[in-house]
Amino acid sequence: MKAFEYVNALTPTSAAGLLGENGRYLAGGIDLLGEMKEYIATPSRVVNVKNLPESKTLTVSDGVLRLGANVTVAGIAAETEILTGWPALAEAARDVGSPQIRAVATLGGNLAQHSRCWYYRQRDLTCLKRGGNTCYARDGQNKYNAIFSGNPCISPVVSNLAVALSALDARVVVQRKEGEASLTVSELYQDAWSNPLAQNSLAPGDLILAVSVPSDGRKSAYLQMSEKSDFDWALVSCAVSGKIEDGKISGARIVLGSVAPVPLVAADAAAFLEGKPLDESSVTQAAEIALAKATPFAHNGYKVPIARALIRRALLKLLV
């Protein structure tokens, strides 16, 4: 990698100040160091944000789960309160990387991670997302790419936690130049839907500080399908949530990962389910609706049946 300066930030505001022209925040480093080793990121300064106050705390009060940005993925996976109150989040965390990665990777880093498209990560290519002219994946090896996109880049979002947090209606607290902002997960990613250069909606210098997740009596579930049994990216992931009364669902949220540049909220499918009993027939119809507008490429049409299966299975899991 390119040589860089390393500084230790003690407060969020000093972190932003230290960043300079071409700096990057470092927490777990799983994503950033990978980009630096491939010269995809060449920051002249790396600002360590692991030691920011309160950033590693996890609290539950008044039914709201609050996670500091530096809570590790392993920490989320292991927390019994999350497992019982927000199972989709714990399940999503358990499927991230390997035990070693989960022990180091942070919530903030998982949300802010960059594209894993193999064209984007190829050191000798400059794809559209890296400022070039072409999305090579469109006419190339697009097996792992998106089946929905609002822009020429078809790199999918791969954060498991984003998918679960979106289904759980979480808010992401971000420090911006203008001050602190509380974003929905959709807002955190929406720029990536339309702008090929965007990984998410964070501007340079923006720093994720914390995430808060309401509970309001909802059940939730997360499922993903990978090629391998463990330590593999999701081909498709799916998180669902909703209130269940007498077997009927209300306020459902259905969110898909690894199929679009953003966590894909299947709002039509959720609306269809409102007030309906969850059974084979209703979940199958919901899955059909969710995938109706998918536009797969030459090698990723298989994501459609997988997404349908995961939606059906995740919804039925809410009854358990």
Binding site: K143, M225, P296, G301, V304, I306
Partner: peptide, 17 residues
Amino acid sequence: PDKVLEALGQIPAGPET
């Protein structure tokens, strides 16, 4: 998995695989 689903005829018609 993509090849299994294709063999099973589960992949919707679209561009060539």
